[in-house]
Amino acid sequence: MAGIVTTPQGPPDAVQLAQPGAAKAWKAAQDFEAMALGQLLAPIFDSVDTAHGPFGGGDGESAWQPMLTQEVAKHVAAHGGLGLAVPVFHQILRLQEAATEPAA
């Protein structure tokens, strides 16, 4: 791996988001992180015994629980999350650039 230089890349700034397709790519990256967080949080929420909670569990609560889990995941992703959105965003941009380059 000698010779490989990586530069830290953070979230896009206003100039990057003004480029064509960048805002859509950033939204897709954030949505991906929220989905991944939702998958990580689902087993945690599923393990909570809601029968003795303030709402008493039941079919109604179990029907709404996946939506609660997903909203919590979206909130966490929007406020920093695990840091997945940034590398996913930059990878999306690299793939878009590679797709638009003329074939040699």
Rank of each mutant, 00 (worst) to 15 (best):
G10F: 05
A25Y: 02
H90G: 02
E97G: 07
G10H: 05
Q16A: 15
P8V: 14
I92C: 02
E61P: 07
K27S: 08
P12D: 03
D49C: 07
D59Y: 11
A2E: 15
L40N: 08
G58R: 08
A14R: 09
P102F: 13
A98F: 06
T7I: 15
G80E: 03
G58E: 06
A103N: 13
E61F: 15
V15M: 13
G3W: 07
F32T: 10
D46A: 12
A99F: 05
F89R: 00
A98W: 03
G57D: 01
E97H: 10
A73D: 02
P12Y: 00
T6M: 14
P87V: 04
H52A: 15
A63W: 08
V88D: 01
G80A: 06
E71W: 08
K74T: 05
A36V: 09
H79K: 11
Q96Y: 07
P87I: 03
T100S: 13
A85T: 01
V72G: 00
D31T: 08
V48F: 07
V48K: 03
G83I: 01
G58S: 04
Q30K: 07
A23I: 03
A23F: 04
G80M: 03
G58Q: 06
A29N: 00
Q96D: 10
H75K: 13
G53P: 04
A36L: 10
Q16H: 12
A34P: 01
Q39K: 12
A104L: 12
Q9T: 14
E101T: 12
G53Q: 09
G10T: 08
E33D: 06
V72M: 04
V86G: 01
G60Q: 05
G58D: 02
F89G: 00
F89P: 00
Q30P: 05
A104S: 15
T100P: 02
R94T: 09
E33A: 05
G10W: 06
A104W: 07
P11K: 09
L68M: 11
G58W: 07
G83E: 03
D13P: 02
F89C: 00
A22T: 04
V72A: 02
A104N: 13
I4N: 12
G57C: 02
E97V: 10
D31A: 09
E101F: 11
F32S: 10
A29S: 03
G53H: 08
A73F: 01
T50R: 12
P66L: 02
A36N: 05
E101N: 12
A63N: 08
A28K: 10
M67F: 11
P8N: 12
V15I: 14
A104Y: 05
V88P: 01
P54Q: 11
Q70H: 11
F55L: 14
A18H: 05
A63L: 12
A85L: 00
E97Q: 12
A25V: 04
L82A: 11
W64K: 15
V5T: 13
Q65W: 04
E97R: 08
P54V: 09
L82E: 09
V48A: 08
Q65H: 08
G38A: 04
D49V: 06
T100Q: 13
A63C: 09
T6W: 14
A78W: 04
A22G: 05
G38R: 01
W64Y: 15
V5S: 12
I92V: 07
L82R: 09
E97L: 10
G38F: 00
A29L: 01
